[in-house]
Simulated assay, not measured.
Amino acid sequence: MQERNIALKLMYVGTAYHGWQVQKNAVSVAETLEKALSTVVCHPVKCTGAGRTDAGVHAEVYIANFHTRSSIPTDRIPLAVNTRLPDDIVVVKATEVPEHFNAIGSCLRKEYTYRIYNSRLGNAFYVNRAWFYPKHLDESIMQRAADCFVGTHDFSAVRAVGTEVRSPVRTVHYFNITRTGDLIECRVCANGFLYNMVRAMVGTCVYAAEGKFAPEDVSAILESRNRTAAGPTVPPGGLYMTQLWYDEDVL
């Protein structure tokens, strides 16, 4: 059997995991998926994922790909692997893709959504699913701050200090902040993200809403490339990967 390149569409709740990436001494989504897949295709499997989601971060949509010589039909793979996975990881589709396809390298754009539960009292159903923030936030001020991030910029001011990357320049296509009742959603789409970038962007918008600086000051903060000038990195439990864009029909 010739080797096939299989793309998997999946979703997961990240609370129990140390992020996507395989790690030596912590349980990850990739390791859990690879172990399940290896029992289905009867050989060791290495998955390439669409991005390195942090510990505790979720994915409503995620793409991973792996290579196999197994002849199992693609429509059987989700059913077979899901019986070997914990309930918080679900494979929803498998597609045979061209040899050159790579879940991260072939990804054109990504969207993350950060959810804030903004109410004086907490909500048990949002524990580890949204950031509980009891002080009222004005989403219109947050939106004015968010607008400053749109475009092509050096995002050094909103990334984890000390992380190696070829270039801190990224293009943000949109950053939309909406409120439905007590739930604030911050949706940001870019051609790529730096480590902790979305969580630091949201923290900066929250600081603007708190009056720590004017929302329009965010442009100057970005230009400064100074991480300490921006807002904090908000907790991981409110962050979700929500959309991915590919040329191939893997979604």
Score class of each variant (00 low, 15 high):
residue 57 V to E: 00
residue 2 Q to G: 05
residue 154 D to T: 00
residue 50 A to K: 05
residue 13 V to F: 12
residue 104 I to V: 04
residue 169 V to I: 15
residue 101 F to Q: 06
residue 115 R to C: 09
residue 107 C to M: 06
residue 250 V to L: 06
residue 189 C to R: 13
residue 136 H to W: 13
residue 105 G to N: 12
residue 209 A to T: 12
residue 120 R to L: 07
residue 37 L to R: 02
residue 76 R to V: 00
residue 245 W to N: 03
residue 166 R to H: 08
residue 123 N to A: 08
residue 112 Y to P: 10
residue 78 P to N: 06
residue 82 N to C: 03
residue 69 R to V: 10
residue 18 H to S: 14
residue 200 A to G: 00
residue 71 S to I: 13
residue 39 T to G: 15
residue 239 L to T: 14
residue 26 A to C: 12
residue 176 N to K: 13
residue 76 R to K: 11
residue 192 G to W: 05
residue 18 H to P: 00
residue 217 D to H: 12
residue 35 K to W: 11
residue 59 A to M: 02
residue 200 A to D: 09
residue 4 R to L: 14
residue 122 G to H: 04
residue 161 V to C: 13
residue 232 P to T: 11
residue 161 V to Y: 14
residue 223 E to F: 01
residue 23 Q to Y: 09
residue 190 A to G: 05
residue 135 K to Q: 14
residue 145 A to F: 09
residue 54 D to T: 15
residue 80 A to Q: 08
residue 226 N to P: 02
residue 250 V to D: 02
residue 60 E to I: 08
residue 122 G to Y: 01
residue 120 R to T: 15
residue 242 T to L: 02
residue 138 D to Y: 05
residue 40 V to W: 04
residue 148 C to E: 14
residue 21 Q to W: 04
residue 207 Y to H: 07
residue 166 R to E: 14
residue 102 N to S: 11
residue 54 D to G: 03
residue 180 T to G: 01
residue 142 M to N: 07
residue 143 Q to N: 03
residue 69 R to C: 12
residue 103 A to W: 02
residue 137 L to C: 05
residue 161 V to K: 08
residue 104 I to W: 08
residue 30 A to W: 06
residue 160 A to D: 11
residue 31 E to V: 01
residue 135 K to H: 13
residue 209 A to M: 13
residue 228 T to Q: 12
residue 94 A to Y: 00
residue 38 S to M: 02
residue 52 R to S: 14
residue 97 V to M: 13
residue 66 F to Q: 07
residue 187 R to D: 04
residue 215 P to R: 02
residue 47 C to Y: 05
residue 220 A to T: 02
residue 179 R to T: 06
residue 54 D to N: 11
